[in-house]
Lab assay of single mutants.
Amino acid sequence: QIFVKTLTGKTITLEVEPSDTIENVKAKIQDKEGIPPDQQRLIFAGKQLEDGRTLSDYNIQKESTLHLVL
């Protein structure tokens, strides 16, 4: 699982696999929060994550925290 922290300070927990794409993660966030993926920007280690890449591409491991910017 990974954590996604929103600007409001809320933390969302997501069940993911390293092979999941960023697009996939955004879809999971939409399921939980109702935020359309095209409004979501995910930041990890100061980098904006691209939809077509996977979590493992960015070396995002379990218990990692991503930041969600709208």
Rank of each mutant, 00 (worst) to 15 (best):
V4L: 05
K5I: 15
E33D: 05
G52R: 09
T65C: 09
P37S: 12
L70E: 08
A45N: 15
I29D: 00
N24A: 14
I29P: 00
V4N: 01
T13G: 05
R53V: 07
L42R: 00
N59W: 05
K5P: 01
P37D: 04
D51G: 07
K47A: 09
D38S: 13
Y58G: 01
G34A: 05
F44N: 02
D20S: 07
D38L: 10
K26F: 03
Q1L: 15
G46M: 04
T11Q: 07
K47R: 11
D38Q: 12
K5Q: 10
L42Q: 00
Q61V: 13
L66T: 02
T8M: 11
T11C: 15
E50D: 09
I43Y: 15
G52A: 12
D38R: 11
Q40Y: 15
F3M: 06
F3S: 05
I22K: 00
E33Y: 09
E23A: 14
I29R: 00
N24Y: 14
E15K: 09
T21R: 08
S56F: 11
I43L: 14
E50T: 06
G9P: 02
D57T: 05
R53N: 10
G9E: 04
E50V: 08
T11P: 03
P36F: 06
D31E: 13
L70I: 12
K5H: 10
P37Q: 11
D31A: 14
F3Y: 14
G34M: 05
I22E: 00
T11R: 09
K5C: 15
D20M: 10
K10C: 13
D51H: 06
N59R: 07
Q39T: 08
L68P: 00
F44C: 04
K32A: 13
L49F: 02
P36I: 05
Q1M: 13
V16R: 02
D51I: 05
T54P: 05
T21M: 07
L42P: 00
E15M: 15
L42D: 00
Y58R: 01
D31V: 13
R41L: 11
R41N: 09
L55A: 02
G9N: 06
V25I: 14
S64N: 08
I29C: 02
E23D: 08
E33H: 08
F3D: 03
R41K: 09
L70H: 11
G52D: 12
V4G: 01
K62L: 14
A27V: 11
Y58F: 04
A27L: 13
V16D: 00
I22V: 09
R53M: 15
Q30N: 09
D20W: 09
L68Q: 02
L68G: 01
G52V: 07
G52Y: 11
I2Y: 05
D38Y: 12
Q48D: 13
I43A: 06
R41A: 08
L7D: 11
T65S: 05
L55E: 00
R53H: 14
D51K: 04
L66H: 01
T6G: 06
F3K: 06
D38I: 10
R53S: 07
G52F: 12
G34W: 03
T65P: 03
S64P: 03
Q61R: 09
T13V: 12
S19H: 12
L42C: 01
F3G: 02
T13S: 09
A27H: 13
E50Y: 07
K26L: 04
L66R: 01
Y58N: 02
I22D: 00
P18D: 09
K62V: 13
K62Y: 15
T6C: 12
L68N: 01
R53K: 14
E15R: 07
F3I: 06
K5G: 03
G52N: 11
P37L: 14
E33R: 05
K62W: 12
D38H: 15
T11M: 12
L68F: 03
L68M: 08
I29W: 00
E17V: 12
I35T: 07
G9F: 04
P37V: 14
I35L: 06
R41V: 15
I2F: 04
I60Q: 01
T54C: 08
Q30R: 14
R53D: 05
L68I: 05
Q30S: 11
K47L: 13
L42E: 00
I29G: 00
G9D: 05
S19W: 12
A27Q: 13
K26E: 01
G52M: 09
K26Y: 03
Q40A: 05
Q30W: 15
E33V: 14
E15Q: 12
D38K: 11
K5W: 06
T13W: 07
E63C: 15
I60W: 03
N24R: 13
V69F: 12
A45S: 09
T65Q: 06
S19Y: 12
I43P: 00
S19K: 08
K32V: 12
V4S: 01
Q1Y: 15
S19I: 07
S56A: 13
D20C: 08
K47G: 06
L68A: 02
L55C: 06
N24H: 10
E23P: 03
K26D: 00
D51L: 06
T6N: 06
D51E: 09
Q1N: 10
